[in-house]
Amino acid sequence: MTWSRLLSLPVFAFALQTLLSQTPVVNADKVGLKTNQIKNLVTFGDSYTDTVAISDGGRPWPDYVVQYTGINLSPFARSGATCSNNITYRPFPSLFESQLPDYFAAQRNGTVRHTPSETIYTLWIGTNDVGVSSLLTGSNGASIVDVATCMVNWVKVLYQQGARNFLFQNMLPLETTPLYAPYSWPNRYFNAPRNTSEWSVFMRELTLAGNALTQGSLQALAPTLHDAHIGIFDSHSLFADMYKNPKLYLNGTAPLNVTGAVQTCVYELDKPGSTCTTAQGSARDSFLWYDELHPSEQADRIVAREISEVIQGKSNKWTTWLS
């Protein structure tokens, strides 16, 4: 990794944002969802959305959406996933090689039967694509352009199979997670020596560039998909606001904390094992992060609250409908 590589990304992102600002906006009367239109939620993604291998120490956000809205949930997100193992390989069920085939198989065998107009599909992925053992540390020549293109292709593939309502959740500011922050420590996800400041800067540029690429591509795609509704849920801005203004979101009994985690494990480089500390009870809701990489259950409640508004057809601060 070189600083020239780091510095090229913000220039690209700025140019793309300038282009986006000149993109025509679809007629507002024809975008978004109708009130109480949606009855089914189909989720794709990684550990941030997985309802089986739960990463927040409590209940994942899709389960809270079910509680808040009464919607039917069909969860296909799997921990460790990337968009495609052909781009950034990891030995986990990726979106294109595992999750989408599983969904289409469930359609064929009748396990999943949803009316397209009453169903919304969500995707929250990218954390593993840009992180450790992937773009951040090198991934056989793959680029953020490849990853972003793959993410947008998720819409195209589902649309071709009849899906019509999509909510794309962009990458959060990963440089604020304890794993990628400049003050990071040796932890369960990476305990080798590293330049934490360089990692943090590079991660910031990867997520900004990736989000700009997907936004631009989705804006170009939306007018070409007849009867489709495509929304972007701005996870990046939501988590940046939670990080900056924790009093508006966190409500635990301990001092509010956006730099540590509910469960923190410190690995000593010259000794085997680790030392872990875990917050208990209501103190857990004082943290933005559950561990060094994953949002806390309280953060997931906020995500669920906001996405529930989208599903119910309400106006939402963090969501922009492109069609």
Score class of each variant (00 low, 15 high):
Y48L: 11
A240Y: 09
D227T: 13
L322E: 01
S98N: 00
T115E: 02
W61V: 09
A77Q: 05
V155Q: 00
I54D: 08
S323A: 13
E175M: 12
S74M: 11
I230A: 00
G252A: 06
R188D: 15
F92I: 02
M1V: 13
F233V: 08
L7M: 11
G126F: 03
E198V: 03
P173T: 10
W124V: 02
I307E: 06
P173S: 14
A15W: 12
G58K: 05
A28S: 11
I307T: 06
T275V: 13
S74F: 06
W124P: 00
R204I: 09
T43C: 04
R305E: 13
M1C: 05
E309Y: 08
Q99N: 03
C83G: 15
L218I: 15
L269H: 07
C150N: 05
D270I: 05
Q219D: 12
Y243W: 14
V31E: 03
V147E: 10
G273P: 14
K39Y: 02
F287G: 01
T224W: 05
Q298N: 11
P91Y: 04
L135K: 04
A142G: 14
N211S: 12
T264V: 07
Y290I: 03
S197P: 07
L322W: 01
Q298P: 07
K244T: 11
T127W: 02
Y290S: 09
Q219T: 15
M1T: 13
N140F: 03
G110T: 06
D291M: 01
V303P: 07
P255L: 04
C265R: 06
N109S: 03
A148R: 05
S8R: 12
D56M: 08
Y48N: 05
D300G: 09
G141D: 10
W154D: 01
I125D: 00
N85Q: 02
V145G: 11
F166Q: 03
S217Q: 14
M203K: 04
P186W: 01
N36V: 09
T176D: 05
R108P: 09
P101N: 09
Q67L: 14
L179V: 12
S4Y: 13
V152R: 00
W318L: 07
T275Q: 15
Y189A: 02
S200G: 13
F166Y: 10
T319A: 08
P193L: 07
N128V: 00
P75F: 01
T35Q: 11
V130Y: 10
W318S: 08
A222L: 09
V132Y: 04
T122N: 06
T259G: 03
L6A: 14
T277C: 03
Q67N: 13
I125Q: 00
Q22P: 11
V25A: 15
S98L: 00
N153R: 13
V258C: 01
D270T: 03
L123N: 00
T214S: 08
M171H: 06
P60W: 00
L293C: 05
W321Y: 09
A304R: 04
G32H: 01
R284C: 03
H294K: 05
S117Y: 10
V26K: 10
N195P: 04
P60N: 10
P255F: 08
F287K: 02
G281T: 00
A53F: 08
N40H: 04
T214K: 09
L33W: 11
G45Q: 02
